[in-house]
């Protein structure tokens, strides 16, 4: 069982959350020429790192906010959680 510290609600079990994937993926800017490669990287290609991984979760059975979680994909250790719009140091 993972325990995720929601920045809005505090420590909750993973059962309350839904996963949203790699949080480092950036949507190409609107109103700009977008190459196929850029679009491909945004939609499909993922680094899927082993180790520290910044990812999105939604507190779906709680405050329903999207949050960012820094987690180790090999040990499942959670280092830090952030609000969705919070800068990650």
């Amino acid at each position: 069982m993972l325990y995720i510290n929601c920045p809005h609600c505090g420590m909750r079990s993973q059962n309350e959350f839904s996963y949203g994937g790699d949080a480092s993926v950036k949507r190409p800017e609107l109103n700009k020429e977008i190459s196929d490669k850029e679009w491909d990287d945004f939609v499909y290609n993922r680094k899927s790192l082993r180790g520290k991984h910044l990812e999105l979760w939604q507190h779906i059975s709680g405050c329903r906010q999207w949050i960012k979680v820094e987690r180790d994909t090999a040990t499942h250790e959670i280092f830090k959680t952030f609000k969705a719009d919070e800068e990650v140091a």
Partner: peptide
């Protein structure tokens, strides 16, 4: 399990 993982062991939920 529903989230990226290299753990080779599962989670109970």
């Amino acid at each position: 399990d529903g989230y990226n993982s290299y753990a080779q062991r599962g989670n109970l939920p």
